[in-house]
Design a protein around this nucleic acid. Structure first.
Length: 200
DNA sequence: GAGCCTTTGAAGCCC
DNA sequence: GGGCTTCAAAGGCTC
């Protein structure tokens, strides 16, 4: 466990030492996103089990009219969860394996390791998870027309706004890089909409 | 028991 | 158009 942790840490440090981590990640991801305009049938990664899981989850929440926050609280209706994004799908799939390897129990530490491994994934793996995420979103939007991610706002009390802003403003922080990449991927999604690949 | 921590991505709002 | 904000999962930890 300790050795694995050291290796993970050393990996991060080496990346940082050579100062090329972000550059490589950005270039790789841009290339991967460019490659994403492959036909849907070639990237049908979602297996039957996952399909079933998705259906059961959707049936648990169910398509229904958008309720107000107070109404939800009163009736205790199950909230419609946001569809999982590519990284969340990767986390869900890999967390157990990483936890077993590291015997770490701290999920925050596991998340850090998974974040680094996410950046180390091949283009094919990235494409696979992005496609999975897209396939998660599409039926979700069809089953819950009019549902917005914002509908769930306020249902969790999150950490202090000051701290969050602090992390976002740090140019060297991972979150900062994410925001840039997220905007890039969103733009790619628009571009792909012209090629019948609708992300939004 | 509620909320934090930690990660990345999605998406709406605001300037 | 870019920045900000919140939630999505996970489970140990803290208060």
């Amino acid at each position: 466990m300790f050795i694995i942790f050291i290796l993970e840490f050393a990996n991060l440090e080496l990346w940082d030492i050579f100062g090329k981590k972000k550059e490589i990640i950005d270039n790789t991801r841009k290339k991967m996103l460019d490659d994403l305009d492959v036909p849907d049938e070639l990237v049908a990664f979602q297996n039957e089990g996952e399909e079933q899981d998705h259906k059961s989850r959707d049936s648990a929440t169910g398509p229904r009219a958008r309720p107000g926050r107070a109404q939800v609280k009163e009736a205790k209706k199950p909230t419609i969860k946001k569809p999982l994004n590519a990284f969340m799908l990767y986390m869900k799939e890999t967390r157990a394996k990483v936890t077993a390897e590291c015997t770490l129990k701290e999920t925050a530490a596991i998340s850090q390791i998974l974040g680094r491994r996410w950046h180390a994934l091949s283009q094919e793996e990235w494409a696979r998870y992005y496609e999975l995420a897209r396939k998660e979103r599409q039926p979700h939007m069809q089953l819950n027309p009019g549902w917005l991610g914002r509908d769930n706002y306020g249902k969790k009390k999150r950490w202090s706004r000051e701290k969050h802003q602090e992390s976002n403003r740090d140019p060297g922080s991972p979150k900062h890089a994410v925001l840039t990449l997220a905007s890039v991927s969103r733009r790619i999604g628009v571009v792909h909409a012209d090629n019948s690949l609708h992300y939004s």
